[in-house]
């Protein structure tokens, strides 16, 4: 343990070092380059919205424009076709997240004891946090029954976002002329297929519980046709309300998808651009922001799923 005087000195040195690094970064970044004409520390990054194929290599080279095409001096990047099969960098990162999650939780479960150590305490805190959150929305009984899906969504979104802040996400990739054309792994949240998959799972999960708890009567919420058949004009309003309910149920999938996709993609672009503008230190603040955004997105995704679930399993009173 450093003494308080030593700690103060360390803090001072670190602080001064950070400021110096920030200034160096400012001068040699894109901003400084424009102002003082210094050499740029980093090349201007290319932003690709769709994920890039990594395996098989032929597909990768084709889509990265690395193949020598007749009549063209430089290949151009093309997105993967809608049904083309390839392992993308975002898929790799989702596998990475999956493996990390399995390691953390299964190791914690394997080494569990009634008197927990630090690691087990941490994992238990996470589990109890999600369970408490679910209980506050659904009540303890339903929270326990739906816990696995809600928790897996939460932890997957959270760890996916946080792991993407690790440096090797940025510097591992396939290059051409010293320039990274495609990163080996890239945050899965920036691939619209992942938010879409999670949104579909959330949707199916909510509808499944709706039918399970309320039976076939769950459909009455969407097809309120009883009054029309009895010839009442106000039945038209009911039918329209049902149609709105049905639409909102489906639109949720889209909103779920684009909320997560947008946040993750924006985060990635922000990190890349700030690093390009001021290479050192400034990114730390963005990383802090991204940690918060990752947590918020995980809470929102899991929380909205819980709320929609609680709406689906509640019989409305007429």
């Amino acid at each position: 343990m450093p003494t308080s005087a030593l700690a103060k000195k360390l803090l001072l040195f670190t602080g001064v070092g950070m400021v110096v690094l920030l200034l160096v970064g400012f001068i040699f970044g894109a901003v400084g380059s424009a102002m003082f004409g210094t050499d740029m520390f980093l090349e201007k990054p290319e932003i690709h919205l769709p994920p890039q194929a990594i395996f098989p290599a032929s597909t990768r080279d084709e889509h990265l424009g690395l193949l020598n095409v007749e009549g063209e001096t430089e290949g151009h990047v093309t997105p993967l076709g809608a049904t083309e099969i390839a392992v993308t960098n975002t898929l790799l990162s989702s596998w990475f997240t999956t493996i990390v999650l399995i390691l953390i939780f299964v190791i914690a479960a394997r080494r569990r004891s009634l008197v927990p150590g630090r690691f087990q305490g941490l994992v238990e805190t996470m589990i109890e946090g999600v369970l408490g959150f679910a209980s506050s929305v659904l009540g303890p009984e339903m929270a326990r029954r739906t816990f696995p899906i809600v928790a897996t969504i939460f932890f997957f979104v959270l760890f996916n976002a946080w792991l993407a802040l690790l440096p090797f996400y940025q510097f591992l990739g396939f290059t051409q002329d010293g320039e990274i054309k495609a990163h080996l792994i890239r945050s899965a949240g920036t691939d619209i297929n992942l938010p879409l998959a999670l949104a579909l799972i959330s949707f199916v999960f909510v509808e499944y519980w709706g039918f399970r708890v309320r039976g076939i009567g769950y459909l009455k919420k969407f097809f309120q046709l009883g009054k029309i058949f009895r010839g009442k004009p106000s039945g038209l309003i009911d039918a329209f309300v049902g149609f709105l309910e049905l639409t909102s149920e489906l639109v949720r999938v889209v909103s779920f998808t684009f909320r997560l996709f947008g946040n993750m993609t924006a985060g990635e672009i922000l990190v890349v651009m700030i690093t390009f503008l001021v290479p050192f230190v400034a990114t730390q603040f963005v990383f802090g922001l991204e940690l918060l955004v990752g947590l918020i997105q995980a809470v929102i995704f899991a929380g909205l799923t819980l709320v929609f679930l609680s709406v689906a399993i509640t019989r409305e009173e007429h």
Binding site: L49, P50, P51, L80, A82, E84, N193, L196
Partner: peptide, 9 residues
């Protein structure tokens, strides 16, 4: 496809 939608993914 520009958005990155890919069925196998």
């Amino acid at each position: 496809t520009e958005l990155g939608i890919n069925l196998p993914s």
